[in-house]
């Protein structure tokens, strides 16, 4: 089964497979380091439930759940 970043629960890790977002967003996410093989961890959700906070490449990035659905990942045990 294919999972996306938004399927991961808090604290869970995944490895990026591909960003499927539409163009401007896709380029931005990739340039921020969400490229194939990068490990990402879901750190937390905002107090009101959205957006998410991701941890990757030693920094924290916040994106909305809608955007997280456009990032395919492989779950890491």
């Amino acid at each position: 089964m294919q999972s996306t970043l938004s399927d991961l629960s808090i604290g869970e890790r995944g490895v990026i497979e591909v960003v499927t977002a539409a163009r401007p967003l896709a380029v931005r996410l990739m340039e921020l380091g969400l490229v194939e093989g990068t490990e990402v961890r879901i750190k937390r959700r905002a107090p009101l439930g959205d957006p998410l906070e991701l941890e990757l490449r030693g920094y924290s990035l916040s994106i909305r759940a809608d955007e997280a659905r456009c990032v395919r990942v492989r779950r890491e045990p």
């Binding site: 539409a22 931005r28 920094y59 924290s60 990035l61 916040s62 994106i63 909305r64 809608d66 955007e67």
Partner: peptide, 12 residues
Amino acid sequence: GPRPTLVIELPP
């Protein structure tokens, strides 16, 4: 326009 997105770094 396209639905606005939020992509923002949370610096330390």
